[in-house]
């Protein structure tokens, strides 16, 4: 029994790390642009699917990872320029509908190119599972944990130690003030979507070896990202990470111990519970930190 619980915990941590990354991108985009990007899950899937195609040409996994991240980053930027940027001044509902439209189109595009097949990606490194106290840890999980750590460190470094990071921070705190200081909000919004695309792809390529990849898994991944972000209060980076990991563990335990069919229901119930009881997020205890 103890081993099973440990196993579920490890699975939950892996899943939760992926949710964390998706939540991170959602929160960053939301903080910077005020847009809740419902197409985020599609970035994850398209990233994974591009990797599937690239990997088929025999490229090494590291190159596949990088190319996929860059391509989806460009895609994110392109979509921002073509749609979000042109709809400046639309209501938040209008923006939400635009991102829904994007996600519908991207899903159609994925269906067109990759079809309804289920794909899988090879793990980043060879070797069998690592045994920890009787439970098996997939080496891919370690890569995913590393990805979360690198992402967090990267975001920290960007916001604290670069000019652009500080500019983004300034524009989150006070848009008008930032603009008066000569910070170009247009560029910042572009930056947000490029990084959302890139990070989404990174999450997609990393999770590919563990879960299978299908063209239509983006929506639910996006929703999980929202739940994680909502647990953290929608604008709190640290909260999003913790929220994602909590959600992953809860899901893993509930599908392992109760029923796997209700796995998705659990996360929705958590979402509703959080929104109704504490809309500012459960992790409100952690000091409010927008970036």
């Amino acid at each position: 029994m103890g081993e099973q619980l440990l196993q579920l915990l490890l699975t939950g941590l892996t899943l939760g790390s992926i949710y964390s990354i998706i939540a991170l991108t959602l929160v960053t985009t939301f903080n910077v642009t005020g847009i809740l990007n419902l197409a985020q899950g599609e970035f994850v899937v398209i990233g994974a699917l591009i990797a599937v195609s690239l990997q088929g040409t025999g490229m090494p996994m590291a190159v596949v990872f990088l190319v996929s991240v860059i391509l989806v980053g460009i895609l994110g930027g392109l979509l921002e320029r073509l749609t979000i940027n042109r709809a400046r001044g639309a209501s938040s509902l209008g923006m939400l509908i635009i991102t829904i439209g994007l996600s519908i189109s991207l899903r159609g595009l994925a269906l067109l190119i990759w079809g309804t097949d289920t794909y899988s990606l090879p793990a980043f490194s060879q070797g069998g599972s690592i045994m920890i106290g009787g439970a098996a840890l997939n080496p891919q999980s370690i890569w995913i944990f590393a990805l979360v750590a690198v992402t967090l460190a990267g975001l920290y470094g960007f916001f604290e130690h670069t000019f652009w990071g500080k500019a983004v921070k300034a524009s989150v705190y006070n848009q008008t003030g930032a603009r008066l200081q000569g910070i170009n909000l247009n560029t910042i919004s572009l930056l947000a979507f490029v990084s959302a695309g890139g990070l989404g792809a990174a999450a997609g390529v990393s999770i590919g070896p563990i879960t299978m990849v299908t063209y239509d898994m983006g929506f639910m991944l996006g929703v999980k990202g929202f739940v994680a972000a909502a647990i953290g209060g929608l604008s709190n980076v640290g909260g999003a990470v913790i929220g994602g990991i909590l959600l992953g563990i809860l899901e893993s335990f509930s599908s392992g111990l109760i029923s796997s069919g209700l796995k998705d229901a659990i996360s929705i119930i958590i979402l509703l519970g959080v929104l109704l009881i504490r809309p500012e997020g459960i992790i409100g205890a952690i000091r409010e930190r927008k970036i």
Binding site: L102, I104, L112
Partner: peptide, 22 residues
Amino acid sequence: AGGEYQIIIYGIILVGLMIFQP
């Protein structure tokens, strides 16, 4: 063309409407 094009165009029209006819 299968239903995929339909989905893609549907999404594009949706986005276009929101931009040009909010």
